[in-house]
Write a protein that binds this DNA or RNA. Structure first.
Lengths: 255, 255
DNA sequence: TTAACGGATGAATCTTGGC
DNA sequence: GGCCAAGATTCATCCGTTA
C-alpha cells in the first residue's frame, strides 16, 4: 500500500502524456508498481521468412502491389526471431516491474510470433491467462489459395500474480472490421480497445509503450482512465499526440 | 509417382474403415506417402495446472458443477506438458511419413497447448502455415470474471513440403455453435469439418487417428473422399462406427 | 401463436482446507 | 510453507415447458 502511494506520486509527472521516446527506455523510467495495465501492439518482426525480407523497410515489406497509401516505417521491426524474443523479454520485464500486483498485460500479436510471445511473457514473470481473438472479418484480409485465410490476430493476456476481481466479463472473440482510412499500417479498432480498457479499475492507469497512432491510449482517455505511453517515430508521435490532444513533449523530461 | 501408386495399393485394405486401435500403433501401420490429410483433434492434456488435476479422469476434470450429462473418458489425457509434447512428436512423425508430399495436417488445440503444438509440428518436419480459429460463440463458452472468455479453439495447419495448389479458399475464423446434445465431450461441428475437407483433392484420403465420435471422418465420407481412422475407446468406437455405417472391426487386421 | 420462465451448459478457474 | 484434493463459483445463451 505504501509502495503504491509512493508510486502514484512518482508517476504523476509522466501521466496523461505521450512521450517521444524508445519503449525500453521509457518503461525503465516508470516507477515500480505504478500502472494497472500494459496494453500494447509491439512490432511483430514477422513479415519475412528470412533476413533479406526483414532488411526491407516496414512500408516496403507490407505494402506492395497497387496500394496507394504509404505508411511511415516503424522501428524495431527488423529483428530475427531470437533477437525479437530477447528484446520482448527486456521490455516485458520492465513492464512487470512497473505493473501493480494483479495488473494485466494485454498484447496483440500475429500467428507467427504467438508461441514465442507466450514463452516470453511467462519468462518475464507473468501468469499467462489466455488468448483472445480479433477477427478482422472477411473483408479486410487476403484470401489464401488452398488453405485458411489469415483472418485473425491474437491477444495474449497475462497477469502479475493473482488477478484482482472486478465485475467485467469480456468476450473471447471480437469480430470487427477496421474502418478505412487507417492512420497506421497496423492500426487496431478503437471499439475493441474500448472493451479491453474496461478491465482497468476506476482511476487506473493504462500504459502503451508502442503507441503508434495512439488508439489504445485514446480508448483509455475516453473511458476516464489515466494513460501514459510513448512513441519513437516522429510522424506517428504527431498523429497520436493530436488524437490525444496533448501538447508536444520534449524527448525526455528532466527528473 | 511410383511410390504413390504402391502406397495406394498398400493402404487399400485399411481404407474406409474405422480401426479399434491406439493412434500411434495405427499410424505406424499406414504406408509411406499414402494419405492426403491428417485431420484430427488429439487429447489436449491441459485440464489442470498441476499433476493432481491431470490425474483425474477426463470426465471428472472437465465436467463439474450441476451438469447432468456424463461423458466417457478418453485416453492419453493425463500427461504433463513434457510428456504430451514428446507423445505428439511421435505420432506427428508417423503422420509425416504417411502423408503425401504437399499433404496437410489440420489439428485442433486449445490455447494452453497451442505454442507446444506449433513447436512439435515443425519438429516433426512440417511447414507451419498458420492458425485458424473456431469461434465457439458466446453461447458455448464459460464466462470469465475480470478477463476474456475462452471462447475460441485453434486450428494449427501445416504442410509436408510445398503445398499443392487447388482452388479452394477457406476463411480463417469459423463462428459456429455446437448443437446439443453432443455425442462426445469435445465434439467439433460437422459444418466446420465439411469446410476443412474441401482442401483435399478429389479421390483423396483423410485420416483421423483420434476419431472420437467420428465427425471428421463423417465429413470426409459425405464429401465423397476416402477416409481412414482409429479410436481406442470402445464406447466412442461404437458411436463413430454407427455414424460411419461401418461394421465392427477386430482390434487389428492381419497383414 | 407467441412470450415468458426456469433449468441446463461450459476441453474452467478460483478459494479453501488438509497433510 | 509446499503440495495436493475437494468444493464453490461464474453468466450469456440455449432449449424445453408453461402461461
Amino acid at each position: 500500500m505504501m509502495t503504491e502511494l509512493i508510486a502514484a506520486g512518482a508517476i504523476a509527472p509522466l501521466l496523461n502524456r505521450l512521450h517521444r521516446e524508445d519503449a525500453l527506455h521509457f518503461l525503465s523510467r516508470l516507477p515500480e508498481q505504478s500502472i494497472d495495465m500494459l496494453f500494447t501492439d509491439p512490432p511483430y518482426s514477422s513479415g519475412g521468412l528470412h533476413a533479406a525480407t526483414r532488411a526491407m523497410s516496414t512500408s516496403q515489406k507490407y505494402i506492395n502491389g497497387g496500394t496507394k497509401t504509404k505508411y511511415e516505417d516503424f522501428g524495431s521491426d527488423n529483428m530475427d526471431q531470437r533477437s525479437w524474443t530477447f528484446w520482448c523479454h527486456a521490455w516485458l520485464s520492465e513492464a512487470y516491474r512497473a505493473l501493480m500486483p494483479g495488473g494485466l498485460v494485454v498484447c496483440f500479436i500475429d500467428w507467427r510470433q504467438l508461441p514465442a510471445l507466450t514463452d516470453v511473457v511467462q519468462a518475464a514473470g507473468f501468469i499467462h491467462r489466455g488468448i483472445a481473438v480479433w477477427d478482422k472479418t472477411m473483408a479486410r484480409s487476403r484470401p489464401r489459395r488452398g488453405g485458411f485465410k489469415q483472418q485473425a490476430e491474437f491477444i495474449v493476456w497475462a497477469s502479475k500474480g493473482a488477478m484482482r476481481t472486478n465485475d467485467v466479463y469480456l468476450p473471447g472473440v471480437f469480430p470487427c472490421a477496421l474502418k478505412l482510412p487507417k492512420k497506421h499500417l497496423t492500426e487496431k479498432p478503437l471499439e475493441l480497445a474500448r472493451e479491453v480498457v474496461r478491465l482497468v479499475p476506476e482511476g487506473g492507469i493504462v500504459c502503451d509503450p508502442f503507441a503508434g497512432s495512439g488508439t489504445f491510449l485514446v480508448a483509455a482517455k475516453e473511458t476516464g482512465l489515466h494513460w501514459v505511453g510513448c512513441e519513437a517515430n516522429d510522424v506517428y508521435y504527431g498523429v497520436a499526440a493530436e488524437r490525444l490532444h496533448c501538447t508536444d513533449m520534449p524527448t525526455e523530461q528532466a527528473a
